[in-house]
């Protein structure tokens, strides 16, 4: 199972393979997390906000490969991807475990995954370095067994994504 999360429309031919899905967040209705802890303590594993996010995070959890496409803002994801990743916390439990000597939330049934992040619009090396540090932290909390960041200009986003998808199709 392979999933693309993108903050902008992409012209992709995914063919008819059911194991490839692309969520264009710019066309979805997803509200920001309200920090109610409902997905941990009231309806465990399900968000209390029943918008389009509830289609996305179960799919992310069961994917062995994910590709995120996001503009970089202040060394982090821009709003569309950021909002979705914040809303993905139902895939974790409230309970804390030790991972690599640090405290982190216990994951529910989340498949360890390979993540590729196509990150565009970073202003300089400093912003890229901060984004690298963010993704390294995400790896611990989002079950990235391996990850790769491809910094690119806005004009090269489609080509970078297409290259990855073609590799998926061949696999």
């Amino acid at each position: 199972m392979k999933t693309i999360l993108t903050d902008r429309p992409l012209s992709l031919d995914l063919g008819d393979r059911e194991d490839l899905v692309c969520f264009d967040l710019s066309r979805m209705r997803i509200a920001p997390c309200v920090g109610c802890f409902g997905c941990w303590t009231r309806t465990p594993g399900s968000c209390v906000i029943r918008d389009d996010a509830v289609k996305v995070y179960p799919r992310l959890a069961e994917s062995d490969t994910v590709l995120y496409v996001s503009r970089v803002r202040y060394g982090g994801y821009d709003l569309p991807v950021k909002i979705m990743l914040d809303r993905a916390i139902p895939v974790q439990q409230a309970f804390i475990r030790l991972l690599d000597g640090e405290t982190h939330h216990v994951q529910r049934s989340v498949v360890p995954k390979r993540a590729v992040i196509v990150a565009y619009g970073a202003r300089d090396r400093e912003e890229e370095d901060l984004f690298r540090r963010l993704v390294a932290r995400n790896a611990k909390n989002m079950s990235f067994a391996h990850y790769e960041i491809r910094f690119t200009g806005e004009e090269q986003v489609e080509a970078a994504v297409r290259q990855e998808v073609e590799a998926w199709k061949r696999s």
């Binding site: 941990w40 465990p44 594993g45 399900s46 179960p58 139902p90 439990q93 309970f95 529910r108 049934s109």
Partner: peptide, 9 residues
């Protein structure tokens, strides 16, 4: 219940 491994059931 809080420790369920299910996501969206």
């Amino acid at each position: 219940e809080m420790a369920t491994m299910e996501i969206e059931g």
